[in-house]
Amino acid sequence: MTRRVIAFITDEARVHGTHDDLLVVAPLRERGIEVRFVPWEHAERNADIAAWIVRSPWNYHLRSAAFLDRIGPLAPLHNPLGLIRWNSDKHYLLELAEAGVPIIPTVFSPREALAEVAEATGWEEVVVKPCVSAAGLGTRRVRSEAFFAARSFEGLPEGEYLVQPFLDDVCHEGEVSCVFFNGVYSHSVRKRAAEGHFLVHEEHGGTVAATVPNPDVIAESEAVLRACPEAGLYARVDWIETERGPKLVEVELIEPELFLRAHPLAPGRFADAIARTLGGGS
């Protein structure tokens, strides 16, 4: 069997990949595919690489323009560069809303106008996030009356932010993440925030556990992917379940953690999807 070589794009802090990345190495090897881990900061076109797969460049948002410039020449790239660019700015949420996706109500504002914009919404409590961010960096939960104090935004960098009403459901039910490979549903996890917190990320003390979501959450996730501008090798769709139905938090198409450890078949499913993308395998 001719063994093909692919590259998992990581960053300088994860030159050997993440735990999830490593889980798929053996299944890929069984399918005749070897993996090299390449930090995006040093990625260059290489004729020996059959595919470049963005996996764990979890610092990209700190230098997003440099990241996009660096990976742009890499081919074939998964997910595609156009899809990555589209997903890199949270304005994509408005496009999904226009397509009928139930998003959390969202407005956008430059940092210097956040107080006025938040006040105009009439929401009692809001969440503020940078339009380009990851892992909750720069995300704040603020009560509306506090917006009149400039200190509420001390330390926030210049740039554009999204403002959303805070949904208390996240404190009780957390978020549900649905993972897809080549548009096919694979598995889900429920992420819960630590006591007294609202961010569900593990780096903020949150927990992750396998779950079986309501069928409407999977169906809505499929609708989200149909509304995206092009198909991708992988996707993670994050929801908050409310009394009014699921509300989209975000769709992750750049470097999502895929929680392969949450389901025994997930690493093999991802390996199969990669093999199919290369034109062979299961």
Rank of each mutant, 00 (worst) to 15 (best):
E175R: 05
E175N: 05
E175F: 05
V176T: 15
S177G: 07
C178L: 12
V179C: 14
F180M: 00
F180P: 01
F181S: 04
F181Q: 09
N182W: 02
V184H: 09
V184A: 13
Y185V: 06
Y185E: 01
Y185N: 02
Y185D: 01
H187A: 10
H187E: 07
S188L: 06
S188W: 11
S188I: 09
V189T: 09
V189A: 03
V189E: 07
K191C: 02
K191F: 02
R192Q: 06
A193F: 09
A193C: 10
A193K: 03
E195A: 15
E195D: 11
E195I: 04
G196S: 09
G196M: 08
H197W: 13
L199F: 05
V200A: 07
H201Y: 13
E203M: 12
E203F: 08
H204E: 13
G205S: 07
G206N: 08
V208D: 05
A210P: 09
A210S: 14
V212D: 12
P213M: 08
P215M: 05
P215A: 14
D216W: 05
D216E: 12
V217H: 00
E220C: 01
E222Y: 07
E222D: 05
A223K: 14
V224L: 04
R226L: 08
A227F: 00
P229F: 09
Y234V: 03
A235S: 07
A235K: 00
A235R: 02
R236Y: 06
R236S: 07
V237T: 01
D238Y: 11
D238W: 07
I240L: 13
E241C: 10
E243V: 14
E250R: 10
E252Y: 13
L253D: 03
L253Q: 05
P256I: 09
